[in-house]
Design a protein around this nucleic acid. Structure first.
Lengths: 70, 70
DNA sequence: CCTTGATGTCAAACACTTTTTACACATTGG
DNA sequence: CCAATGTGTAAAAAGTGTTTGACATCAAGG
């Protein structure tokens, strides 16, 4: 799964912390998702898309699962 | 979160079991999601949308969280 | 009646997501 | 220097999603 949260965030001038507030999650959660540590829950994916005024399908793109490394 | 998996499935003549196979998850998982026991992971949401030849935003609609009852 | 396929439900176990707390570095401005 | 803001990272604990195995109901057909 890849996402363009960072780009969408930056053109809107929203920090990770602000986006976290808008989605009611921790700043670390947004940071981890942006950096592909893990995928958000479906609910949070909708929250993020909503905060960025776009669609889930526009923020996230599915791609074959990448195996986790060490 | 609500979804129209059942309707999308039925117009395509796909059973819960078949959809489960297409998504590589158990039949119970599809059943539980259809019956709003819980929301799928984002990855599975994409898998379901894909199997039903539509978009995540078309299959699932976000709505205020419903508190769990005993 | 018996079998088969589709659906609904439960519980235990396991894997993954999220929170919390804490520390690090860079930049901006007093 | 010191404070504030934005970002990256880590570990433990809590919460959520998924699998497996089991059992129940309903409908269709031998």
């Amino acid at each position: 799964m890849k996402n363009n949260i960072k780009q969408l965030r930056e053109v809107r001038g929203i920090s990770q912390g602000k986006l976290a507030l808008m989605c009611s999650v921790s700043r670390q959660t947004i940071n981890a998702i942006e950096n592909n540590k893990y995928d958000p829950s479906l609910e949070l994916a909708f929250g993020i898309a909503d905060a960025l005024e776009t669609k889930v399908d526009s923020v996230f793109k599915y791609q074959k699962k990448e195996k986790k490394r060490g």
